[in-house]
Design a protein around this nucleic acid. Sequence first.
DNA 1: GAAGCGTGGTA
DNA 2: TTACCAAGCTT
Length: 323
Amino acid sequence: MQWNCPSEPQGESVHQQVLQWFRESARDLPWRGGCSPWGILVSEIMLQQTPVVRVRPVWEEWMARWPDPAAFAAAPQAEVLRAWGRLGYPRRALRLHAAAGVIVEKHDGAVPDTFEELLALPGIGTYTAAAVAAFAFGRRETVVDTNIRRVFARLVIGQALPAPSLTAAEMALAKELLPEDAAASVEWNAGVMELGALVCTARSPQCGICPVRRECAWIAAGQPEPSYVPKGQPWAGTDRQVRGAVMAVLRAAESPVHAELFWGPASELAALKEHLSHPGEVADALKSLHNLNVHAPQLQRSLASLVADGLAQLSDGGYHLPH
DNA sequence: GAAGCGTGGTA
DNA sequence: TTACCAAGCTT
């Protein structure tokens, strides 16, 4: 594969074409260009499995309220979870909170600048550690996210989709393609990621406007279909759905929500009475939960798992967000 | 290594 | 409308 050789001629390279496209087409996102390492870390956590359009407003509020790790670490967990809102996967919020605590205790309040130190923080895995080291500190790291995996699968391998899970071969390929120069590597990582997010998308890729369509192995192969069917995540009837509905109730409530309100034959009557003393949001959230028609064992299990995860606490017969 | 974990926009 | 999918991590 001559074009991806690190010693390829500069002018015509895939690298140059992606970098040029990135400079012209990159979105103007608030966590790009002069953002603090803390802001970049927060954005990376929020962006895990969550689209940019939903992250942006929450990130803006977040940074205005907690401009540094120390300010955030001092916030009560309940406020953290409320500020997280409906971003989803609320365990991320608690792990970020715990990470901020470690940053204050062990790193003097400054986001660490190495891959290894970042990887040791709760909620930070290989992707996020590499991304923060690269985008916040300009380090040369092998950043591999779902966008980059998909771009390389098409551009280099000629397949419609990457393997179901990250392979060692993919990491090796990404390492090979990474520019030697640190600054160039950072831009390359961001550029390939952006290309995957805007052009080489999962559903309907915009191959007509792709800067590297002429070098694309997938197009050259006639855009073959995926070799496997991605297995979707079940949702209806799952504990996840129930947990989400319960968390919506707890976020809206400013006082403990009586256990009776969650299940039991009297639940609907109790919820009705609660209308009088609870704000409308709590009543609406309870109504949504009741509309799921969850049987007691599953509701019990979901509540217990939320408590086990530290997302909820039970005291005085009522469930509430953790203090 | 597979399964579990939220949420809402889009095709 | 029903699935798929989004800058993954943890157990």
